[in-house]
């Protein structure tokens, strides 16, 4: 058994050595009626990485993923997954990918165990092996206790975990996760993030769509920002951020009555508008003109010195990269979708 496993692993990684690109699309188009849901998307996803597709609701993320996963036929353009055309060689693509859709892709009437046994059988496991595989996966995903309960009685986080367990049952070479954390509480969201990291560490390529800038920033090595069916920016999280500005200075004061004075000092030194945060002792200022990191830190040091000179007590001073929220606003001219209110309430 063990030696068989090793042989299979060995053959598999060899066959993959040649595929340096997991996904390659050019001019991908899909229309529904009059609207172009996907309007000429070019993507290049290197194998073995997490690639983030970031965009607000209705941007065309799900439509793109469905075309790549062979569920929808593109109206125009080309898409290849590990070199296989998603239309002409759909079967070859299917044998290497799996999808966790935006809405549960498990059977709600069945139990968690039955779902995984069914899928194991469909992936070629024989009866006893299928059950064994299901048991192992349920345990790894913390679902043993819920194994014999119908999925309709699962919480959102458990359902999502089962869904991902089903998707990695066969250790795909490419895993599509369509908004895997939308609607999850922070604890479940962190679990999904850990799972994604483990899966990619194993060598599986992950294409993850999200509306959450923080999520793409944390997980993805490269990000495509899409809006209204078009890629409006592409690069590493760092590249995207520096295209907007060098960074922001975050200041926390000891005394709130000094904030107005601090605002004036910062505005003078940095030459930009200073934002007063919700926290009554905090301020944030964007450094706009510094296109290099060094200039930005020089300016920040000068600001700190001047605050000190003016007799303002600073508790905390930091120079951070701009958030992806700012990136989105700068790129599209409109802010990204707000998060669900429920989710912000849940504190960790």
């Amino acid at each position: 058994m063990v030696s068989a496993a090793m042989t299979a692993e060995g053959t598999r990684s060899m066959s993959e050595a040649g595929d340096s690109l997991a996904i390659e699309t050019s001019g991908l188009v899909k229309s529904f009626g009059g609207t172009r849901a996907v309007d000429g998307i070019d993507l290049t996803v290197p194998a073995g990485t997490v690639y983030g597709v970031l965009g607000p609701n209705g941007a065309g993320k799900t439509t793109t993923v469905r075309m790549l996963a062979t569920l929808l036929r593109p109206d125009g353009g080309q898409a290849r997954v590990f070199g296989h055309d998603v239309v002409r060689e759909a079967d070859a693509v299917r044998s290497r990918v799996s999808l966790t859709g935006q809405y549960a892709s498990v059977d709600e009437d069945l139990t968690g165990m039955e779902n995984l046994v069914l899928l194991s059988r469909l992936l070629g496991y024989r009866k006893p092996a299928a059950r064994e595989r299901a048991v192992t996966l349920l345990e790894a995903f913390g679902l043993t206790e819920a194994a014999d309960r119908q999925v309709k009685n699962y919480s959102g986080g458990m359902r999502r975990r089962l869904d991902i367990a089903a998707s990695i049952l066969n250790t795909p070479d490419l895993l599509f996760l369509d908004e895997p954390t939308t609607g999850l509480d922070p604890r479940s969201r962190n679990q999904v993030w850990d799972i994604v990291r483990a899966v990619v560490a194993h060598g599986t390529t992950v294409l993850l769509t999200t509306q959450y800038l923080e999520e793409a920033d944390r997980l993805a090595e490269r990000i495509a920002v899409i809006d209204r069916g078009k890629v409006i920016a592409e690069g590493t999280p760092g590249e995207l951020k520096s295209s907007v500005g060098a960074g922001s200075v975050h200041v926390r004061l000891r005394d709130r009555w000094q904030r107005e004075q601090a605002r004036q000092v910062l505005a003078r030194v940095l030459g930009t508008e200073v934002q007063l945060d919700a926290d009554p002792v905090a301020l944030t200022a964007r450094i706009m003109d510094g296109d290099s990191r060094d200039r930005a830190s020089a300016q920040a040091s000068r600001a700190l010195a001047e605050l000190d000179e003016a007799g303002i007590t600073v508790d905390d001073f930091s120079l951070g990269q701009p958030s992806l929220d700012e990136v989105f606003l700068a790129l599209t001219g409109h802010p990204a979708e707000e998060r669900d209110e429920n989710e912000q309430e849940v504190a960790e």
Binding site: A4, E9, A140, G142
Partner: peptide
């Protein structure tokens, strides 16, 4: 779920034993 939460280790374990 009183089960242990999934961790990087538990997930890696089920992945690496995998035979298609």
């Amino acid at each position: 779920a009183p089960d242990r939460d999934p961790t990087a280790e538990t997930i890696s374990a089920v992945l690496s034993r995998e035979v298609r």
